[in-house]
Amino acid sequence: MGDEVYSQMVKELKDGKYVFTGELEPEKAGDVNEPIEMARELVGLVTACNVTDNPQSMAYVSSLAASYQIQKETGMECVYQLRCADRNRMALLSDVLGAGVLGLKNILALAGDHVSLGDTPDAKPVFDLDSTTLIAMIRKVVDEGKDLGGNEIHNPPKLHVGGAAAPGAAYLQAEVAKVKRKINVGAEYLQTQVVYYTDVLDKFFNELGKVDVPILVGIFPARTFGQADFFDKNVAGVDVPPAYLENMKATKAIKDKEKKKEEVDRVNIEFFTGFLEHLKGTPAAGCHMMAVGYPRIIAPLKKVIE
Protein backbone atom coordinates (compact mmCIF):
# COMPACT_ATOMS: atom_id res chain seq x y z
CA MET A 1 0.00 0.00 0.00
CA GLY A 2 1.07 3.57 -0.64
CA ASP A 3 1.35 6.06 2.23
CA GLU A 4 -1.73 8.10 1.41
CA VAL A 5 -5.09 7.21 2.89
CA TYR A 6 -8.21 8.32 1.10
CA SER A 7 -10.88 5.93 2.33
CA GLN A 8 -12.23 4.65 5.63
CA MET A 9 -11.71 1.04 4.49
CA VAL A 10 -8.02 1.54 3.76
CA LYS A 11 -7.61 3.57 6.96
CA GLU A 12 -8.99 0.72 9.04
CA LEU A 13 -6.87 -1.83 7.17
CA LYS A 14 -3.77 0.27 7.79
CA ASP A 15 -4.70 0.63 11.46
CA GLY A 16 -4.78 -3.16 11.68
CA LYS A 17 -8.50 -3.28 12.41
CA TYR A 18 -10.34 -6.43 11.35
CA VAL A 19 -12.40 -5.16 8.42
CA PHE A 20 -15.75 -6.37 7.17
CA THR A 21 -17.05 -5.49 3.73
CA GLY A 22 -20.40 -6.30 2.17
CA GLU A 23 -21.67 -6.61 -1.35
CA LEU A 24 -24.47 -4.86 -3.19
CA GLU A 25 -25.76 -5.80 -6.59
CA PRO A 26 -27.42 -3.24 -8.85
CA GLU A 27 -29.76 -5.09 -11.20
CA LYS A 28 -31.44 -4.76 -14.57
CA ALA A 29 -33.60 -1.84 -13.53
CA GLY A 30 -33.99 1.88 -13.92
CA ASP A 31 -33.33 2.47 -10.24
CA VAL A 32 -31.05 1.31 -7.44
CA ASN A 33 -33.68 1.31 -4.70
CA GLU A 34 -33.03 -2.28 -3.63
CA PRO A 35 -29.26 -1.99 -3.11
CA ILE A 36 -29.87 1.32 -1.34
CA GLU A 37 -32.25 -0.42 1.08
CA MET A 38 -29.66 -3.17 1.64
CA ALA A 39 -26.94 -0.58 2.19
CA ARG A 40 -29.05 1.16 4.84
CA GLU A 41 -29.28 -2.10 6.77
CA LEU A 42 -25.52 -2.59 6.55
CA VAL A 43 -24.48 0.87 7.76
CA GLY A 44 -22.52 0.38 10.97
CA LEU A 45 -22.15 -3.35 10.36
CA VAL A 46 -19.56 -3.24 7.58
CA THR A 47 -16.91 -0.65 6.76
CA ALA A 48 -17.63 -0.58 3.05
CA CYS A 49 -19.69 -2.33 0.39
CA ASN A 50 -18.62 -3.56 -3.00
CA VAL A 51 -20.94 -2.55 -5.80
CA THR A 52 -20.84 -5.15 -8.54
CA ASP A 53 -20.17 -4.32 -12.19
CA ASN A 54 -22.20 -6.52 -14.56
CA PRO A 55 -21.68 -9.65 -12.42
CA GLN A 56 -21.58 -12.94 -14.36
CA SER A 57 -21.70 -10.72 -17.45
CA MET A 58 -25.31 -9.71 -16.90
CA ALA A 59 -25.81 -6.18 -18.22
CA TYR A 60 -27.10 -4.18 -15.23
CA VAL A 61 -27.16 -0.59 -13.95
CA SER A 62 -23.73 1.00 -14.19
CA SER A 63 -21.76 0.30 -11.03
CA LEU A 64 -20.40 3.84 -11.20
CA ALA A 65 -23.88 5.38 -11.06
CA ALA A 66 -24.97 2.88 -8.42
CA SER A 67 -21.89 3.40 -6.23
CA TYR A 68 -22.38 7.15 -6.32
CA GLN A 69 -26.08 6.97 -5.53
CA ILE A 70 -25.66 4.42 -2.73
CA GLN A 71 -22.85 6.38 -1.11
CA LYS A 72 -24.81 9.64 -1.38
CA GLU A 73 -28.12 8.27 -0.09
CA THR A 74 -26.83 6.06 2.72
CA GLY A 75 -23.35 7.25 3.62
CA MET A 76 -22.08 3.69 3.05
CA GLU A 77 -18.56 3.81 1.63
CA CYS A 78 -18.51 1.95 -1.67
CA VAL A 79 -15.92 -0.23 -3.34
CA TYR A 80 -16.66 0.52 -6.95
CA GLN A 81 -16.08 -2.63 -8.98
CA LEU A 82 -14.77 -1.97 -12.47
CA ARG A 83 -14.30 -4.71 -15.06
CA CYS A 84 -12.34 -4.83 -18.28
CA ALA A 85 -14.81 -7.00 -20.19
CA ASP A 86 -16.94 -4.10 -21.40
CA ARG A 87 -14.62 -1.13 -21.73
CA ASN A 88 -11.43 -0.28 -23.53
CA ARG A 89 -8.65 1.63 -21.78
CA MET A 90 -10.16 4.98 -22.71
CA ALA A 91 -13.54 4.19 -21.20
CA LEU A 92 -11.84 2.70 -18.14
CA LEU A 93 -9.82 5.88 -17.64
CA SER A 94 -12.93 8.03 -18.09
CA ASP A 95 -14.76 5.97 -15.48
CA VAL A 96 -11.83 6.11 -13.06
CA LEU A 97 -11.70 9.91 -13.39
CA GLY A 98 -15.49 9.99 -13.07
CA ALA A 99 -15.28 7.92 -9.89
CA GLY A 100 -12.96 10.55 -8.43
CA VAL A 101 -15.35 13.34 -9.40
CA LEU A 102 -18.23 11.48 -7.74
CA GLY A 103 -16.33 11.05 -4.48
CA LEU A 104 -15.67 7.30 -4.70
CA LYS A 105 -12.54 6.25 -2.84
CA ASN A 106 -12.05 2.54 -3.57
CA ILE A 107 -11.97 0.66 -6.84
CA LEU A 108 -11.80 -3.10 -7.23
CA ALA A 109 -10.17 -3.74 -10.61
CA LEU A 110 -11.45 -6.89 -12.31
CA ALA A 111 -11.09 -8.57 -15.67
CA GLY A 112 -14.69 -9.78 -15.50
CA ASP A 113 -16.40 -12.91 -16.75
CA HIS A 114 -16.44 -13.48 -20.49
CA VAL A 115 -19.45 -11.78 -22.05
CA SER A 116 -20.53 -15.05 -23.67
CA LEU A 117 -21.38 -16.40 -20.19
CA GLY A 118 -23.99 -13.75 -19.46
CA ASP A 119 -27.30 -12.49 -20.76
CA THR A 120 -25.89 -10.64 -23.78
CA PRO A 121 -23.65 -13.31 -25.33
CA ASP A 122 -23.40 -11.70 -28.78
CA ALA A 123 -21.67 -8.61 -27.39
CA LYS A 124 -18.08 -8.00 -28.45
CA PRO A 125 -15.80 -8.82 -25.52
CA VAL A 126 -13.37 -5.95 -24.95
CA PHE A 127 -10.59 -6.95 -22.50
CA ASP A 128 -8.34 -4.22 -23.88
CA LEU A 129 -6.73 -4.19 -20.44
CA ASP A 130 -6.76 -6.97 -17.85
CA SER A 131 -7.04 -6.75 -14.09
CA THR A 132 -3.28 -6.29 -13.65
CA THR A 133 -2.87 -3.57 -16.27
CA LEU A 134 -5.99 -1.83 -14.95
CA ILE A 135 -4.49 -1.78 -11.45
CA ALA A 136 -1.24 -0.40 -12.91
CA MET A 137 -3.15 2.23 -14.87
CA ILE A 138 -5.09 3.39 -11.82
CA ARG A 139 -1.93 3.65 -9.73
CA LYS A 140 -0.31 5.70 -12.49
CA VAL A 141 -3.33 7.98 -12.61
CA VAL A 142 -3.45 8.46 -8.83
CA ASP A 143 0.27 8.49 -8.00
CA GLU A 144 1.77 10.19 -11.04
CA GLY A 145 -1.19 12.09 -12.42
CA LYS A 146 -0.68 10.49 -15.82
CA ASP A 147 -2.64 8.17 -18.07
CA LEU A 148 -1.21 5.12 -19.86
CA GLY A 149 -0.04 7.31 -22.74
CA GLY A 150 1.87 9.50 -20.30
CA ASN A 151 -0.56 12.40 -20.77
CA GLU A 152 -0.88 14.71 -17.77
CA ILE A 153 -4.10 14.57 -15.74
CA HIS A 154 -5.12 17.82 -14.10
CA ASN A 155 -6.06 17.34 -10.44
CA PRO A 156 -5.91 13.52 -10.50
CA PRO A 157 -8.41 11.54 -8.40
CA LYS A 158 -7.50 10.38 -4.92
CA LEU A 159 -8.62 6.80 -4.54
CA HIS A 160 -7.39 3.30 -3.78
CA VAL A 161 -7.28 0.30 -6.05
CA GLY A 162 -7.50 -3.34 -5.09
CA GLY A 163 -7.57 -6.63 -6.90
CA ALA A 164 -9.27 -10.00 -6.65
CA ALA A 165 -7.80 -13.40 -5.84
CA ALA A 166 -9.29 -16.86 -6.31
CA PRO A 167 -8.12 -19.23 -3.55
CA GLY A 168 -10.12 -22.07 -5.13
CA ALA A 169 -8.44 -21.74 -8.52
CA ALA A 170 -7.94 -25.09 -10.21
CA TYR A 171 -4.27 -24.30 -10.91
CA LEU A 172 -3.27 -22.54 -7.71
CA GLN A 173 0.39 -21.87 -8.51
CA ALA A 174 -0.50 -19.80 -11.56
CA GLU A 175 -3.23 -17.97 -9.63
CA VAL A 176 -0.84 -17.11 -6.82
CA ALA A 177 1.79 -15.87 -9.29
CA LYS A 178 -0.89 -13.68 -10.85
CA VAL A 179 -1.91 -12.32 -7.45
CA LYS A 180 1.72 -11.47 -6.70
CA ARG A 181 1.91 -9.73 -10.05
CA LYS A 182 -1.09 -7.61 -9.05
CA ILE A 183 0.62 -6.75 -5.78
CA ASN A 184 3.84 -5.87 -7.59
CA VAL A 185 2.07 -3.36 -9.82
CA GLY A 186 0.38 -1.68 -6.89
CA ALA A 187 -2.79 -3.41 -5.67
CA GLU A 188 -3.44 -1.89 -2.24
CA TYR A 189 -5.78 -4.59 -0.97
CA LEU A 190 -7.14 -7.91 -2.14
CA GLN A 191 -10.62 -9.32 -1.88
CA THR A 192 -10.94 -13.01 -2.58
CA GLN A 193 -13.52 -14.99 -4.45
CA VAL A 194 -15.83 -16.96 -2.20
CA VAL A 195 -14.19 -19.72 -0.15
CA TYR A 196 -16.10 -22.49 1.63
CA TYR A 197 -13.35 -24.91 2.61
CA THR A 198 -10.76 -24.12 5.26
CA ASP A 199 -8.16 -26.33 3.59
CA VAL A 200 -8.57 -24.39 0.34
CA LEU A 201 -7.95 -21.18 2.27
CA ASP A 202 -4.91 -22.57 4.09
CA LYS A 203 -3.41 -23.86 0.88
CA PHE A 204 -3.86 -20.44 -0.70
CA PHE A 205 -2.20 -18.57 2.18
CA ASN A 206 0.64 -21.11 2.32
CA GLU A 207 1.27 -20.85 -1.40
CA LEU A 208 1.10 -17.05 -1.30
CA GLY A 209 3.41 -16.66 1.67
CA LYS A 210 3.80 -13.33 3.43
CA VAL A 211 2.64 -10.31 1.49
CA ASP A 212 2.37 -6.65 2.47
CA VAL A 213 -1.16 -6.24 1.22
CA PRO A 214 -4.25 -6.82 3.37
CA ILE A 215 -6.47 -9.66 2.20
CA LEU A 216 -10.21 -9.81 2.80
CA VAL A 217 -11.49 -13.35 2.41
CA GLY A 218 -14.81 -13.74 0.62
CA ILE A 219 -17.69 -15.78 2.01
CA PHE A 220 -21.15 -16.20 0.56
CA PRO A 221 -23.94 -16.92 3.02
CA ALA A 222 -26.84 -17.64 0.69
CA ARG A 223 -30.30 -16.24 1.37
CA THR A 224 -31.96 -19.05 -0.57
CA PHE A 225 -31.08 -22.50 -1.86
CA GLY A 226 -31.36 -21.07 -5.39
CA GLN A 227 -28.59 -18.55 -4.71
CA ALA A 228 -26.27 -21.22 -3.35
CA ASP A 229 -27.09 -23.59 -6.17
CA PHE A 230 -26.51 -20.88 -8.80
CA PHE A 231 -23.11 -20.14 -7.27
CA ASP A 232 -22.20 -23.81 -7.29
CA LYS A 233 -23.23 -24.33 -10.90
CA ASN A 234 -22.24 -21.04 -12.51
CA VAL A 235 -19.38 -19.35 -10.68
CA ALA A 236 -15.96 -20.45 -11.89
CA GLY A 237 -13.54 -21.64 -9.24
CA VAL A 238 -16.20 -22.07 -6.54
CA ASP A 239 -17.51 -25.39 -5.25
CA VAL A 240 -20.25 -25.15 -2.67
CA PRO A 241 -20.02 -28.01 -0.12
CA PRO A 242 -22.70 -30.65 -0.83
CA ALA A 243 -23.77 -30.88 2.84
CA TYR A 244 -24.39 -27.13 3.01
CA LEU A 245 -26.31 -27.30 -0.27
CA GLU A 246 -28.42 -30.19 1.10
CA ASN A 247 -29.26 -28.27 4.27
CA MET A 248 -30.18 -25.21 2.24
CA LYS A 249 -32.30 -27.36 -0.07
CA ALA A 250 -34.21 -28.75 2.91
CA THR A 251 -35.31 -25.20 3.85
CA LYS A 252 -37.31 -25.03 0.61
CA ALA A 253 -39.94 -27.33 2.07
CA ILE A 254 -40.74 -25.04 5.02
CA LYS A 255 -44.04 -23.27 4.30
CA ASP A 256 -44.07 -20.71 7.13
CA LYS A 257 -42.04 -17.72 5.95
CA GLU A 258 -40.66 -16.73 9.35
CA LYS A 259 -39.71 -20.31 10.22
CA LYS A 260 -38.04 -20.66 6.84
CA LYS A 261 -35.98 -17.51 7.46
CA GLU A 262 -34.97 -18.79 10.88
CA GLU A 263 -33.89 -22.13 9.43
CA VAL A 264 -31.91 -20.52 6.60
CA ASP A 265 -30.13 -18.33 9.16
CA ARG A 266 -29.48 -21.35 11.36
CA VAL A 267 -27.95 -23.32 8.45
CA ASN A 268 -25.71 -20.39 7.53
CA ILE A 269 -24.63 -19.64 11.08
CA GLU A 270 -23.92 -23.31 11.72
CA PHE A 271 -21.83 -23.66 8.56
CA PHE A 272 -19.96 -20.37 8.68
CA THR A 273 -19.19 -20.36 12.41
CA GLY A 274 -16.58 -23.05 11.91
CA PHE A 275 -15.18 -21.33 8.85
CA LEU A 276 -14.97 -17.91 10.50
CA GLU A 277 -13.36 -19.30 13.64
CA HIS A 278 -10.74 -20.83 11.38
CA LEU A 279 -10.39 -17.55 9.46
CA LYS A 280 -9.34 -15.77 12.66
CA GLY A 281 -6.20 -17.89 12.71
CA THR A 282 -5.19 -17.06 9.13
CA PRO A 283 -3.32 -13.99 7.84
CA ALA A 284 -6.64 -12.54 6.55
CA ALA A 285 -7.12 -8.85 7.35
CA GLY A 286 -10.86 -9.17 7.26
CA CYS A 287 -13.85 -10.77 5.67
CA HIS A 288 -15.73 -9.82 2.55
CA MET A 289 -19.28 -10.94 3.22
CA MET A 290 -21.02 -11.33 -0.10
CA ALA A 291 -24.43 -11.77 1.43
CA VAL A 292 -26.28 -10.27 -1.52
CA GLY A 293 -29.80 -9.33 -0.50
CA TYR A 294 -29.25 -10.91 2.92
CA PRO A 295 -28.09 -8.17 5.30
CA ARG A 296 -29.65 -9.73 8.43
CA ILE A 297 -27.01 -12.48 8.46
CA ILE A 298 -24.06 -10.09 8.78
CA ALA A 299 -24.46 -9.23 12.48
CA PRO A 300 -24.61 -12.81 13.80
CA LEU A 301 -21.67 -13.86 11.61
CA LYS A 302 -19.58 -10.88 12.72
CA LYS A 303 -20.11 -11.95 16.32
CA VAL A 304 -18.21 -15.17 15.64
CA ILE A 305 -15.04 -13.24 14.86
CA GLU A 306 -15.41 -10.34 17.30
Partner: peptide, 8 residues
Protein backbone atom coordinates in the same frame (compact mmCIF):
# COMPACT_ATOMS: atom_id res chain seq x y z
CA UNK B 1 -25.27 -5.75 -34.29
CA UNK B 2 -22.75 -8.40 -35.29
CA UNK B 3 -22.95 -11.70 -33.38
CA UNK B 4 -19.53 -11.79 -31.75
CA UNK B 5 -20.48 -14.98 -29.93
CA UNK B 6 -19.55 -16.83 -33.13
CA UNK B 7 -15.95 -15.82 -32.56
CA UNK B 8 -15.64 -17.21 -29.05
Amino acid sequence: PHEWSKAK
